[in-house]
Amino acid sequence: MNDVQTTVLTVIEQLLERSDKSGVVVTLDSVIHGDGLSLDSLETAELSAILEDEFGSDPFAAGLMPETVAEIVAFYGAGEGAAAS
């Protein structure tokens, strides 16, 4: 697992913990909304803001709507985001 993957997974785990969903297992295949991590719109906004803090950009603000954790990781892996801080 590379640094970007680790950071993204950690960010999501911390967010879920803050939202009282700490029992949810996060993997690259996890679906962000619906039956997956079940993030609501405000939690998605929080994730967007935290990712921007971490990486300097985030896929949601860039107009993308990633559906899985892997798609978030891919946004940074594809070089569209800034390097991890």
Binding site: R18, L42, A45, E46, S48, A49, I50, E52, D53
Partner: peptide
């Protein structure tokens, strides 16, 4: 607000 959401 994005900063406030991030730090809680």
């Amino acid at each position: 607000v994005r900063n406030m959401l991030s730090h809680g």
